[in-house]
Computed example of a mutant assay.
Amino acid sequence: MLIGAEVIAAQPDRTAEVMAAFTRARREPMRAAMRSMMLRRPGLEAEAASLRLPVLMFAAHGDGMGSGPDDIRDVAATMPDARVVEVAGAGHLAPLFIDVDTIHDRLLDFWVDAQEPGRSLS
């Protein structure tokens, strides 16, 4: 689910714009992208453990297109410098509509912390 009922009710105009963009998209490339994600999407676990830079991941409950908070925390636990932030919203895009303040604040915190001596984002 891209956008849950709570987001549609809270922000009908903005969600209508997003859904219209998906409706207008050319079908064949959209189908190919979705098929690739569903059938050939590799897990992150092996690569995640090798990351040696700060990582910030957002996890929403009810994101049927991705992983839930527990799955994200499991992946983060394999990395030396990872944070997981749980955000509100049921749906893959829902947090971008209804929990934008949390996303904004945690991103700023992440960038500020990454500037500390001895840490690097590159």
Score class of each variant (00 low, 15 high):
G4P: 00
I8E: 01
A9W: 12
A10F: 04
A10I: 01
Q11M: 09
D13F: 13
A16D: 03
M19K: 15
A20E: 10
A20G: 12
A20Y: 11
R24M: 09
R24H: 12
R26M: 09
R35P: 00
S36F: 14
M37R: 15
M38N: 13
L39W: 15
L39N: 13
R41C: 03
E47G: 15
E47P: 07
L51C: 08
L51P: 00
R52D: 06
L53G: 00
L53N: 01
L56D: 00
A59C: 05
G62C: 10
G62I: 09
M65T: 07
M65S: 09
D70S: 14
I72Y: 04
I72E: 01
D74S: 15
V75P: 00
A77R: 15
V84F: 09
E86R: 13
A88K: 14
G89K: 07
G89A: 07
A90S: 13
G91H: 04
P95I: 03
L96C: 13
I103D: 01
L107C: 11
L107E: 06
L108T: 12
D109N: 07
F110M: 02
F110V: 03
W111I: 10
V112R: 10
V112T: 08
V112P: 00
D113K: 08
D113Y: 03
A114W: 03
P117M: 06
G118K: 06
G118C: 03
L121F: 04
L121W: 04
